[in-house]
């Protein structure tokens, strides 16, 4: 804990769908510029938790959110907060890479453009910078104008990373970002996340324990909508305090 500073503070977060409680009274601090990995069996609410950070839970589908989430000290669920401003603070990587239906260049330039960057030269430099940051530049620099959908899945996920970074967030959210990728690409993406943590707060959801061990600085174990245990990675992996965590780590619950 020493040396961790809070970037996102979740306080008494409850998410309900009708009478079903998806997330139960979650209170959790997510450290700044570290990789926080949320693990837990499927269906335990990991993705919901991640989406609640980005305010992507849709009230029109019957989801009700109660509680506070402070990002940079600002409650993102406060009514006067404006949602595009919140979302921009976080880049999102989804399970299956979701490239936008446009060229590689336009994908990365999407956020800068809608946020008001028009000047061509700066735009080109920005795109180059973020593609490099995501480790994709060398592979695509000669075909920036081709449709992003023609890239391999692994490349697409890194493109999504570059695209998210170009919105200049402080936080990167990953919803099982490697689940659709082959081992080689997975490793590539993991390495990128590790490289990026010096500048960004990273929150990743995964159900692959080995991946969690590889990249996590901080671990959150979520089970049936509750935070069972959380703490620095080595501590949780070596000396889990809760029997359920132990059971999960040994593979008895999956």
């Amino acid at each position: 804990m020493e040396g961790f500073r809070t970037h996102i503070s979740i306080q008494n977060l409850n998410v309900n769908h009708g009478s079903r409680r998806i997330l139960k009274d979650i209170t959790l601090d997510i450290p700044d510029r570290r990789i926080t990995v949320i693990v837990g069996p499927s269906g335990c609410g990991k993705t919901t938790l991640l989406k609640s950070l980005n305010r992507l839970l849709d009230p029109s589908e019957g989801l009700r959110v109660h509680g506070r989430i402070l990002v940079d000290g600002e409650n993102i669920y406060s009514p006067d907060v404006e949602v595009t401003h919140i979302r921009r603070k976080m880049g999102l990587l989804s399970q299956k890479p979701q490239v936008l239906p446009m060229s590689i260049f336009d994908n990365v330039a999407f956020a800068p453009r809608i946020h008001g960057l028009r000047e061509k030269k700066t735009l080109a430099r920005t795109v180059e910078h973020y593609l490099k940051l995501a480790g994709l530049w060398e592979e695509v620099k000669d075909r920036l104008a081709t449709p992003a959908s023609e890239l391999s899945v692994g490349q697409q996920q890194r493109l999504c990373l570059a695209r998210g970074l170009a919105a200049e967030p402080g936080i990167i959210l990953g919803d099982e970002p490697t689940s659709a990728l082959d081992p080689q690409s997975s490793k590539h993406v993991e390495q990128r996340l590790i490289d990026l943590k010096s500048d960004y707060t990273v929150v990743v959801v995964t159900h692959i324990l080995r991946q969690a061990k590889r990249i996590a600085d901080y671990i959150v174990f979520l089970y049936l909508g509750e935070v069972v245990e959380h703490g620095p990675a080595e501590k949780v992996f070596e000396r889990p305090r809760d029997p359920r965590t132990r059971a999960y780590l040994t593979g008895e619950i999956s």
């Binding site: 500073r5 940079d72 000290g73 920005t126 500048d199 959380h230």
Partner: peptide, 30 residues
């Protein structure tokens, strides 16, 4: 297990420092 909440003065929310000399092109919110 709670730790000190960051304040604005801690530099949170500011652009991350870039080592490779690239410009922060946009204001935080445009």
């Amino acid at each position: 297990m709670r730790f000190r909440l960051l304040q604005k003065s801690d530099g949170v929310g500011k652009k991350p420092q870039r080592t490779d000399g690239i410009l922060a092109v946009l204001e935080t919110d445009g």
